[in-house]
C-alpha cells in the first residue's frame, strides 16, 4: 500500500479535471456526430449523470479507504468533488437545453416532479461546496468549512434517490448506488456513541 501511495503522490490532481473535461467533450462530440445511438440526448444525459454519481461514491469512499485500507486519496478529493459538480451541471444542462428545451417546462418539472425536485436539490447543495473548494475559503471559513462540507452527505443521498425514483419497474442498478452511498455514510457513524448500552454489552 505504501508503494501505491507514494506512486499516487506523483500524480497531479489537476489531471482529474483534464481527463473529465476531455471525456465530457468527447461524449458530446459523439452525440453530435450520431455515435451515441438512436437517442443521443438521453444517452448524454444519462452518461453525465451516472458518471457524476460514480464520482460521488468515489468521493465518499476516500475517508473509509484511508481508514480501513490505508489507501490515501485525500489530495484528489477536491478535484473529485469539483469535477462531480461540473458533471452534474453538464447533466442538468443537457436535460434543460436539449431534452426539456424550454424554461417554462424546466420550471414546471422542478416544481411538479418529485424526482426532478430531488435532483435539483442535490445540484443546489453542490453549489456552496464547489464555490468554497479553494484554499482561500478553507482558511477564511475555518472550522465552519468542515461543517459546510458535510452537505456532501445529504447531497449524495438525494442524488441516489433521484436515480432510484426515475427508474421504471423494479430495477437493480439504481438501488446498488443507493446501497453503496448509504453504506459509505454508515461507515462514518460512530455507532458506539449512538448506542452506548450496546457497545458496553458487546465489550
Amino acid at each position: 500500500m505504501d508503494r501505491i501511495n507514494s506512486a499516487l503522490r506523483r500524480v497531479p490532481p489537476w489531471l482529474i479535471y483534464v481527463v473529465a473535461a476531455a471525456w465530457a467533450a468527447w461524449m458530446f462530440w459523439r452525440g453530435v456526430t450520431g455515435d451515441l445511438g438512436a437517442d443521443p440526448v438521453k444517452a448524454l444525459e444519462h452518461t453525465y449523470g451516472e458518471r457524476a454519481l460514480q464520482l460521488v461514491v468515489l468521493g465518499l469512499a476516500i475517508t473509509p479507504l484511508r481508514r480501513f485500507a490505508g489507501l490515501n486519496l485525500i489530495r484528489f478529493r477536491r478535484a473529485i468533488g469539483v469535477t462531480t459538480f461540473f458533471l452534474v451541471l453538464a447533466h442538468f444542462t443537457v436535460w434543460a437545453v436539449l431534452d426539456v428545451q424550454s424554461l417554462a417546462r424546466v420550471w414546471a418539472d422542478i416544481v411538479k416532479r418529485p424526482y426532478i425536485t430531488v435532483g435539483m436539490a442535490a445540484l443546489a447543495l453542490l453549489i456552496p461546496l464547489a464555490v468554497t473548494s479553494n484554499n482561500w475559503s478553507v482558511r477564511r471559513l475555518g472550522p465552519k468549512w468542515r461543517k459546510l462540507h458535510k452537505l456532501t452527505y445529504p447531497m449524495a443521498v438525494l442524488a441516489a434517490v433521484h436515480y432510484v425514483w426515475l427508474a421504471k419497474g423494479f430495477q437493480i442498478e439504481p438501488l446498488v448506488y443507493l446501497a453503496l452511498i448509504v453504506g459509505l455514510l454508515a461507515l462514518r457513524v460512530k455507532w458506539s456513541g449512538l448506542l452506548p448500552g450496546l457497545a458496553r454489552r458487546s465489550a
Binding site: 452525440g31 451515441l36 437517442d39 443521443p40 440526448v41 417546462r105 411538479k112 416532479r113 426515475l166
Partner: peptide, 22 residues
C-alpha cells in the same frame, strides 16, 4: 393527462439527432 413523474404534453422524435426540437 401527465404521467405522475413526467409531462406527456410533448415528445422527442427519435432520429433527429442531438439538437432536434420537441
Amino acid at each position: 393527462v401527465d404521467h405522475p413523474r413526467w409531462s406527456q404534453a410533448s415528445e422527442r422524435r427519435i432520429g433527429g439527432g442531438l439538437f432536434a426540437a420537441r
